[in-house]
Simulated scan of single mutants.
Amino acid sequence: MYGDPALAKLTDRIADGGVVILSGAGLSTESGIPDYRGETGRRRRAEPMTYQTFIGSVAARRRYWARSHLGWRHVARAAPNAGHRAVTELQRRGLISGIITQNVDGLHQAAGAQDVIELHGSLDRVTCLACGRRSSRALLDQRLREANPRWDAQDAAINPDGDAVLADDQVEAFHLVDCRDCGGVLKPDVIFFGENVPRPRVEECYALTERAGTLLILGSSLTVMSGYRFVRHAAEHAVPVAIVNQGSTRGDAHAVLTLDTPLGSTLTALTALTARTSAIDP
Protein backbone atom coordinates (compact mmCIF):
# COMPACT_ATOMS: atom_id res chain seq x y z
CA MET A 1 0.00 0.00 0.00
CA TYR A 2 2.78 2.46 0.90
CA GLY A 3 4.09 2.23 -2.67
CA ASP A 4 0.75 3.12 -4.26
CA PRO A 5 1.27 6.18 -6.53
CA ALA A 6 -2.28 7.43 -5.87
CA LEU A 7 -1.68 7.26 -2.12
CA ALA A 8 1.57 9.18 -2.55
CA LYS A 9 -0.26 11.90 -4.49
CA LEU A 10 -2.97 12.08 -1.84
CA THR A 11 -0.30 12.31 0.85
CA ASP A 12 1.17 15.37 -0.87
CA ARG A 13 -2.23 17.03 -1.03
CA ILE A 14 -2.99 16.32 2.63
CA ALA A 15 0.45 17.55 3.68
CA ASP A 16 -0.33 20.91 2.05
CA GLY A 17 -3.17 21.35 4.58
CA GLY A 18 -6.50 23.11 4.21
CA VAL A 19 -8.29 19.80 3.67
CA VAL A 20 -12.05 19.59 4.12
CA ILE A 21 -13.42 16.11 4.79
CA LEU A 22 -16.80 14.92 3.52
CA SER A 23 -17.42 11.53 5.12
CA GLY A 24 -20.12 8.96 4.43
CA ALA A 25 -21.37 5.65 5.74
CA GLY A 26 -18.43 3.73 4.29
CA LEU A 27 -16.20 5.26 6.95
CA SER A 28 -18.28 3.63 9.70
CA THR A 29 -18.72 0.13 8.29
CA GLU A 30 -15.50 -0.99 9.99
CA SER A 31 -17.19 -0.03 13.26
CA GLY A 32 -19.96 -2.51 12.50
CA ILE A 33 -22.52 0.00 11.21
CA PRO A 34 -23.88 -1.08 7.81
CA ASP A 35 -24.47 1.34 4.95
CA TYR A 36 -27.13 1.62 2.26
CA ARG A 37 -25.07 1.56 -0.93
CA GLY A 38 -21.53 0.39 -0.25
CA GLU A 39 -20.14 -3.10 0.15
CA THR A 40 -22.38 -3.91 3.13
CA GLY A 41 -25.39 -2.18 1.59
CA ARG A 42 -25.34 -4.40 -1.47
CA ARG A 43 -25.94 -7.40 0.77
CA ARG A 44 -29.28 -6.17 2.15
CA ARG A 45 -32.55 -4.73 0.97
CA ALA A 46 -32.98 -1.84 3.38
CA GLU A 47 -35.60 0.75 2.47
CA PRO A 48 -34.95 3.97 4.39
CA MET A 49 -37.76 5.75 6.19
CA THR A 50 -39.01 8.83 4.34
CA TYR A 51 -40.18 12.01 6.04
CA GLN A 52 -43.55 11.87 4.31
CA THR A 53 -44.18 8.30 5.50
CA PHE A 54 -43.10 9.10 9.07
CA ILE A 55 -45.36 12.12 9.54
CA GLY A 56 -48.27 10.59 7.62
CA SER A 57 -48.97 7.47 9.68
CA VAL A 58 -49.00 6.41 13.32
CA ALA A 59 -48.33 2.87 12.12
CA ALA A 60 -45.21 4.04 10.27
CA ARG A 61 -43.95 5.88 13.34
CA ARG A 62 -44.58 2.81 15.50
CA ARG A 63 -42.64 0.70 13.03
CA TYR A 64 -39.78 3.19 12.92
CA TRP A 65 -39.45 3.63 16.69
CA ALA A 66 -39.80 -0.09 17.48
CA ARG A 67 -37.06 -0.97 15.02
CA SER A 68 -34.90 1.99 15.98
CA HIS A 69 -35.34 1.38 19.72
CA LEU A 70 -33.67 -1.97 19.28
CA GLY A 71 -31.21 -0.97 16.56
CA TRP A 72 -30.02 2.21 18.27
CA ARG A 73 -28.39 0.13 20.98
CA HIS A 74 -26.14 -1.30 18.27
CA VAL A 75 -25.16 2.19 17.09
CA ALA A 76 -24.68 3.44 20.66
CA ARG A 77 -22.24 0.59 21.37
CA ALA A 78 -20.19 1.21 18.22
CA ALA A 79 -16.66 2.51 18.70
CA PRO A 80 -14.59 4.68 16.36
CA ASN A 81 -12.38 2.71 14.00
CA ALA A 82 -8.93 3.37 12.57
CA GLY A 83 -10.37 5.65 9.90
CA HIS A 84 -12.05 7.93 12.43
CA ARG A 85 -8.91 8.03 14.55
CA ALA A 86 -6.78 8.90 11.52
CA VAL A 87 -9.06 11.83 10.63
CA THR A 88 -8.81 13.10 14.20
CA GLU A 89 -5.02 12.85 14.12
CA LEU A 90 -4.79 14.76 10.85
CA GLN A 91 -7.05 17.44 12.32
CA ARG A 92 -4.87 17.59 15.43
CA ARG A 93 -1.85 18.26 13.22
CA GLY A 94 -3.66 21.20 11.61
CA LEU A 95 -3.99 19.60 8.18
CA ILE A 96 -7.79 19.46 8.18
CA SER A 97 -9.72 22.73 8.18
CA GLY A 98 -13.19 21.23 8.38
CA ILE A 99 -15.18 18.01 8.68
CA ILE A 100 -18.60 17.51 7.12
CA THR A 101 -20.21 14.15 7.78
CA GLN A 102 -23.28 12.57 6.26
CA ASN A 103 -23.23 10.04 9.10
CA VAL A 104 -25.55 10.23 12.09
CA ASP A 105 -23.54 7.97 14.42
CA GLY A 106 -21.36 10.54 16.23
CA LEU A 107 -18.21 8.46 15.71
CA HIS A 108 -16.08 11.37 14.48
CA GLN A 109 -16.71 13.15 17.77
CA ALA A 110 -16.23 9.94 19.76
CA ALA A 111 -12.78 9.70 18.18
CA GLY A 112 -11.99 13.23 19.37
CA ALA A 113 -12.66 15.28 16.22
CA GLN A 114 -13.70 18.89 16.78
CA ASP A 115 -16.22 21.17 15.06
CA VAL A 116 -17.86 18.43 13.02
CA ILE A 117 -20.77 19.57 10.85
CA GLU A 118 -23.42 16.85 11.03
CA LEU A 119 -25.08 17.37 7.68
CA HIS A 120 -27.90 14.91 8.40
CA GLY A 121 -28.13 15.39 12.16
CA SER A 122 -27.46 12.80 14.85
CA LEU A 123 -29.25 9.74 16.20
CA ASP A 124 -28.36 10.65 19.78
CA ARG A 125 -30.84 13.55 19.76
CA VAL A 126 -34.63 13.66 19.47
CA THR A 127 -36.81 16.58 18.41
CA CYS A 128 -40.52 17.33 18.83
CA LEU A 129 -42.27 18.19 15.58
CA ALA A 130 -44.80 20.39 17.43
CA CYS A 131 -42.80 22.53 19.86
CA GLY A 132 -39.26 21.98 18.53
CA ARG A 133 -37.83 20.89 21.87
CA ARG A 134 -34.68 18.76 21.60
CA SER A 135 -33.81 16.06 24.09
CA SER A 136 -31.33 13.23 24.37
CA ARG A 137 -31.83 9.83 22.81
CA ALA A 138 -30.71 8.25 26.08
CA LEU A 139 -33.70 9.85 27.83
CA LEU A 140 -36.07 8.62 25.14
CA ASP A 141 -34.57 5.15 25.40
CA GLN A 142 -35.34 5.14 29.12
CA ARG A 143 -38.92 6.33 28.53
CA LEU A 144 -39.51 3.69 25.85
CA ARG A 145 -38.18 0.96 28.13
CA GLU A 146 -40.60 2.09 30.85
CA ALA A 147 -43.49 2.17 28.35
CA ASN A 148 -42.65 -1.33 27.09
CA PRO A 149 -41.64 -3.33 30.17
CA ARG A 150 -42.65 -6.69 28.70
CA TRP A 151 -41.64 -6.06 25.12
CA ASP A 152 -39.44 -9.04 24.35
CA ALA A 153 -38.03 -8.32 20.88
CA GLN A 154 -34.56 -9.72 20.50
CA ASP A 155 -31.61 -8.39 18.56
CA ALA A 156 -32.06 -9.10 14.87
CA ALA A 157 -30.32 -8.07 11.68
CA ILE A 158 -29.32 -4.41 11.78
CA ASN A 159 -29.91 -2.22 8.76
CA PRO A 160 -28.32 1.21 8.20
CA ASP A 161 -28.88 4.02 10.73
CA GLY A 162 -29.69 1.62 13.56
CA ASP A 163 -32.79 0.14 11.96
CA ALA A 164 -33.38 -3.39 13.27
CA VAL A 165 -35.40 -5.98 11.39
CA LEU A 166 -38.51 -6.96 13.40
CA ALA A 167 -41.54 -9.14 12.79
CA ASP A 168 -44.92 -7.42 12.40
CA ASP A 169 -46.26 -8.76 15.70
CA GLN A 170 -43.26 -7.32 17.56
CA VAL A 171 -43.87 -3.92 15.99
CA GLU A 172 -47.59 -3.98 16.80
CA ALA A 173 -46.88 -4.70 20.46
CA PHE A 174 -44.65 -1.65 20.80
CA HIS A 175 -45.95 1.45 22.64
CA LEU A 176 -44.93 4.94 21.55
CA VAL A 177 -44.32 7.95 23.78
CA ASP A 178 -44.90 11.62 22.92
CA CYS A 179 -43.18 14.89 23.81
CA ARG A 180 -43.21 15.44 27.57
CA ASP A 181 -43.74 19.19 27.11
CA CYS A 182 -46.57 19.38 24.58
CA GLY A 183 -47.61 15.84 23.65
CA GLY A 184 -46.31 16.30 20.10
CA VAL A 185 -44.78 13.71 17.78
CA LEU A 186 -41.17 12.81 18.46
CA LYS A 187 -38.71 12.33 15.63
CA PRO A 188 -34.99 11.52 15.67
CA ASP A 189 -32.96 14.68 15.06
CA VAL A 190 -31.86 13.41 11.66
CA ILE A 191 -32.74 14.30 8.10
CA PHE A 192 -34.98 11.62 6.61
CA PHE A 193 -35.11 10.93 2.89
CA GLY A 194 -37.49 13.49 1.38
CA GLU A 195 -36.60 16.09 4.01
CA ASN A 196 -34.36 19.12 3.38
CA VAL A 197 -31.15 19.88 5.21
CA PRO A 198 -31.57 23.31 6.91
CA ARG A 199 -30.33 26.02 4.55
CA PRO A 200 -27.89 27.67 7.02
CA ARG A 201 -26.17 24.30 7.47
CA VAL A 202 -25.87 23.86 3.70
CA GLU A 203 -24.47 27.37 3.28
CA GLU A 204 -21.88 26.71 5.98
CA CYS A 205 -20.76 23.61 4.09
CA TYR A 206 -20.62 25.49 0.80
CA ALA A 207 -18.43 28.19 2.37
CA LEU A 208 -16.13 25.59 3.90
CA THR A 209 -15.83 23.83 0.55
CA GLU A 210 -14.94 27.04 -1.29
CA ARG A 211 -12.05 27.72 1.12
CA ALA A 212 -10.66 24.18 0.96
CA GLY A 213 -7.25 23.31 -0.41
CA THR A 214 -8.67 19.85 -1.20
CA LEU A 215 -12.11 18.34 -0.69
CA LEU A 216 -11.49 14.77 0.47
CA ILE A 217 -14.41 12.33 0.19
CA LEU A 218 -14.24 9.38 2.58
CA GLY A 219 -16.59 6.42 2.25
CA SER A 220 -19.44 7.95 0.26
CA SER A 221 -20.88 6.80 -3.05
CA LEU A 222 -22.25 10.36 -3.46
CA THR A 223 -25.45 8.88 -4.87
CA VAL A 224 -27.62 11.36 -2.96
CA MET A 225 -27.49 15.01 -3.99
CA SER A 226 -27.17 16.03 -0.34
CA GLY A 227 -23.46 15.18 -0.44
CA TYR A 228 -22.78 15.24 -4.18
CA ARG A 229 -23.63 18.95 -4.40
CA PHE A 230 -20.48 19.80 -2.46
CA VAL A 231 -18.35 17.90 -4.96
CA ARG A 232 -19.97 19.85 -7.78
CA HIS A 233 -19.50 23.07 -5.82
CA ALA A 234 -15.81 22.29 -5.31
CA ALA A 235 -15.38 21.62 -9.03
CA GLU A 236 -17.12 24.89 -9.90
CA HIS A 237 -14.66 26.77 -7.66
CA ALA A 238 -11.56 24.91 -8.92
CA VAL A 239 -11.10 23.12 -5.59
CA PRO A 240 -9.41 19.73 -6.16
CA VAL A 241 -11.50 16.70 -5.16
CA ALA A 242 -9.97 13.43 -3.95
CA ILE A 243 -12.01 10.32 -3.17
CA VAL A 244 -11.26 7.29 -1.00
CA ASN A 245 -14.10 4.78 -1.26
CA GLN A 246 -14.70 1.11 -1.88
CA GLY A 247 -16.39 1.11 -5.26
CA SER A 248 -17.03 3.81 -7.82
CA THR A 249 -18.85 7.02 -6.90
CA ARG A 250 -21.03 9.57 -8.61
CA GLY A 251 -18.26 12.12 -8.15
CA ASP A 252 -15.40 10.23 -9.79
CA ALA A 253 -15.51 12.37 -12.94
CA HIS A 254 -14.83 15.48 -10.82
CA ALA A 255 -11.93 13.97 -8.89
CA VAL A 256 -8.24 14.58 -9.49
CA LEU A 257 -7.57 11.18 -7.91
CA THR A 258 -9.54 8.23 -6.55
CA LEU A 259 -8.56 5.31 -4.34
CA ASP A 260 -10.75 2.21 -4.29
CA THR A 261 -9.45 0.77 -1.02
CA PRO A 262 -10.57 0.01 2.58
CA LEU A 263 -10.85 3.21 4.59
CA GLY A 264 -9.22 2.21 7.87
CA SER A 265 -5.93 0.89 6.51
CA THR A 266 -5.68 3.59 3.84
CA LEU A 267 -6.19 6.47 6.26
CA THR A 268 -3.80 4.90 8.77
CA ALA A 269 -1.15 4.69 6.04
CA LEU A 270 -1.93 8.25 4.98
CA THR A 271 -1.44 9.49 8.54
CA ALA A 272 1.95 7.76 8.76
CA LEU A 273 3.07 9.07 5.38
CA THR A 274 2.11 12.67 6.14
CA ALA A 275 4.09 12.43 9.37
CA ARG A 276 7.15 11.34 7.37
CA THR A 277 6.60 14.15 4.87
CA SER A 278 6.48 16.69 7.68
CA ALA A 279 9.67 15.31 9.20
CA ILE A 280 11.52 15.50 5.86
CA ASP A 281 10.19 18.91 4.86
CA PRO A 282 9.56 20.94 8.02
Rank of each mutant, 00 (worst) to 15 (best):
D16Q: 14
D252I: 12
L267W: 05
A153I: 14
F193H: 11
S28F: 06
G183D: 04
N245E: 04
F230H: 09
D163W: 05
V19S: 01
I33H: 03
H254S: 10
L129N: 02
N81T: 12
N159C: 09
V20D: 00
H237W: 03
V19I: 13
S23C: 07
A59Y: 07
G17Y: 09
R125S: 07
R67H: 10
Y206H: 10
V256H: 02
D155F: 09
R145C: 09
R92G: 06
L176Q: 04
D124W: 11
R44H: 15
R145E: 12
G162E: 03
H69I: 03
G121K: 02
E146D: 10
T50D: 00
G251C: 06
G106I: 11
G194S: 04
D152A: 15
S122H: 08
R77F: 05
G247I: 13
S221D: 02
A279P: 04
Q91W: 12
T268A: 12
S135R: 09
G184L: 05
D12G: 13
L90E: 01
R92C: 02
D4Y: 06
L186E: 00
G3L: 15
R77Q: 09
V116L: 05
C205E: 03
R93G: 05
W65K: 07
G247R: 10
H254P: 03
A46V: 09
D260S: 09
L218V: 14
P240M: 12
R45N: 15
A6F: 10
Q91S: 08
D12I: 12
D155W: 11
L140V: 05
Q154Y: 02
A76C: 06
Q142H: 13
E146M: 15
V256R: 01
Q246E: 13
A6L: 10
G26D: 03
